[in-house]
């Protein structure tokens, strides 16, 4: 077994193990950093495969993404510190079955599939070829991705902004009641707490 094989085995094991830990840790912050570890291990495998730009790009993309994720965890989620046990799942058995089936089906494709043995040339410069492709033949694809990202940014700001042209984003919305039709858990100065007026929204 060569050195590269050994590193691959270790990184593959780390990627799968930490990917699995994402869904069984008690803390959501920990979950997002387990996911980051999984991504970093995959990035190292990509480096071993010779994709020197993609592997490193994955590191910084995912570091920022998971940082944002952890930030949101602390903001919105219950139990970000993992001090209590946490299990928030539905259709657990079906989901586990689907995951196992997907794994075996895809592995069967990998094992029994007949892929052409055409490794990348050893003198190939992956960074140069990728750059020439991105701003050459596939410029339309690349720029479409860029425009889509811009559209996402605009849409996301519009969706998450507090203010709209006709008032607050949450105007007319009402927190769910503690029991059906009852008072909401969070009242503040919302309309639900005023008692006399009851609005129907359909």
């Amino acid at each position: 077994m060569s050195f590269v094989d050994l590193i691959f085995l270790i990184c593959g094991a780390i990627a799968i193990f930490s990917g699995w830990r994402v869904f069984c840790t008690d803390s959501m912050v920990r979950a997002s950093f387990f996911l980051l570890i999984s991504f970093i291990a995959v990035g190292v495998i990509m480096l071993l495969l010779g994709a020197v730009y993609l592997g490193v790009a994955l590191f910084f993309m995912m570091a920022v993404e998971m940082m944002v994720m952890a930030l949101f965890m602390v903001m919105f989620m219950m139990n970000p510190a993992g001090l209590n046990p946490m299990k928030m799942v539905h259709q657990d058995k079906f989901a586990a079955l689907a995951g196992v089936v997907a794994f075996f089906a895809l592995s069967a494709v990998a094992v029994f599939g007949d892929f052409p043995d055409q490794p990348r040339p050893s003198d190939l410069d992956p960074v140069v070829t990728l750059g020439k492709e991105l701003l050459g033949d596939s410029m339309l694809v690349f720029e479409s991705a860029g425009v889509t990202l811009l559209a996402t940014m605009i849409g996301v700001v519009a969706m998450s902004s507090h203010r709209g042209r006709y008032g607050d984003a949450n105007a007319g919305s009402r927190p769910p009641g503690l029991e059906p039709g009852g008072m909401p858990a969070f009242s503040g100065d919302q309309e639900g707490s005023s008692g006399g007026h009851h609005h129907h929204h359909h």
Binding site: V42, M69, F72, H90, A95, A98, V109
Partner: peptide, 24 residues
């Protein structure tokens, strides 16, 4: 390499189908 990828996809599918929290 494809088996490792398949395992990641399988675990991800389990998570996407089973978790109740949006972020999870």
């Amino acid at each position: 390499v494809q088996i490792v990828a398949a395992a990641l996809i399988g675990i991800g599918l389990y998570g996407a189908l089973s978790q109740q929290s949006f972020v999870m």
